[in-house]
């Protein structure tokens, strides 16, 4: 029996590798200069979905992402690795969303997709770092949630069995389908792109991307419907505007400070026994140690 799986994937700035070119002269990070990547734990989520698809023939894997137009890259990346189709949710009305407004918009899009057995998200995005969107989407869809998943053991007979990795141990839980899972970085890495799929989906585009391109692409997607990435604006899904974007976000950012990597006066000590002994004696005398 095939499963209908939706993977939630977010495009994020690569906050892990802040290279020299992303540093401003004042020692703070230039966020705009960070490359945009597929959120790492969403790749772990995608792999879990692909394993389900391998195991349960006839399954269908859909990627859903909310973000600016260029977030379509995330969907193409998913197609290259084995997803069947994707939806890009993009609209200025979503700008400034906190996790509640984000999960509201995503849950409305999922309601429109309508049929699903399992929704798989990453545990946490590396920019907002909250790990809140998964559980909040589950709540809004009135689904059970299983967070911190490391392995999906099985998903059949209307039930799912999942191994969770917690701070101090592991746990196996069972839940009825449909349900929402969030996947940890400790789960297996995602398989690489498949060369044949890259060839097939290289020209997969959203309607906006097609319009930005030459006419050829429109022709291309006319006879190859799989090259069309669905793009939804706020008008394509059913929402109550008061829960969207900035208005729908109870949390407000009052202030943002860049962390400055500053130097402080430090005392240099060589590895000679004399200097090390002086340090030890000083620390003993001022009661830091001993």
């Amino acid at each position: 029996m095939g499963l209908k799986i939706i993977v939630l994937a977010k495009q994020v700035p690569d906050t892990r590798n802040v290279g020299k070119d992303a540093m401003k002269a004042d020692g703070t990070v230039n966020r705009a200069a960070l490359p945009a990547i597929f959120n790492p734990e969403d790749l772990n989520a995608l792999e879990q979905a692909l394993r389900l698809k391998d195991r349960y023939k006839g399954s269908e894997l859909t990627i859903l992402t909310m973000g600016p137009g260029r977030a379509a890259d995330v969907i193409r990346e998913g197609l290259y690795r084995g997803a069947d189709k994707g939806y890009l949710l993009t609209d200025r009305a979503f700008a400034g969303s906190d996790t509640l407004a984000t999960s509201y918009a995503i849950s409305c899009a999922i309601k429109k997709i309508k049929s699903y057995d399992i929704i798989i998200a990453g545990r946490q995005a590396i920019d907002g770092d909250t790990a809140q969107v998964g559980p909040q989407v589950a709540e809004k869809l009135n689904l059970p949630q299983i967070t911190y998943a490391e392995k999906i053991n099985a998903a059949d007979n209307g039930k799912i069995s999942v191994l969770r990795r917690l701070e101090r141990g592991v746990e196996t839980v069972e839940a009825p389908l449909p349900c929402l899972i969030t996947v940890n970085a400790s789960a297996p890495d995602c398989r690489p792109r498949n060369a044949k799929r890259v060839m097939k989906y290289k020209h997969a585009k959203t309607i906006t991307e097609t319009q930005d391109q030459s006419v050829d692409y429109i022709d291309l997607s006319a006879d190859r419907p799989y090259l069309k990435i669905e793009e939804w604006s706020v008008n394509d899904i059913e929402t109550d505007m008061q829960w969207l974007g900035l208005t729908g976000s109870p949390t407000k950012v009052k202030k943002i400070e860049n962390v400055v990597f500053q130097a402080k006066e430090s005392k240099l000590i060589s590895n000679s026994e004399n200097e090390l002994e002086e340090l030890i004696v000083e620390l003993i005398e001022n009661h830091t140690i001993g």
Partner: peptide, 21 residues
């Protein structure tokens, strides 16, 4: 309540408030 937290992989520190909820 001023809720102060690092984000962006620790590269920024944000003060978050919930004025109305």
């Amino acid at each position: 309540l001023y809720q102060i937290r690092p984000a962006f992989g620790g590269n920024i520190v944000a003060t978050i408030i919930n004025p109305d909820c």
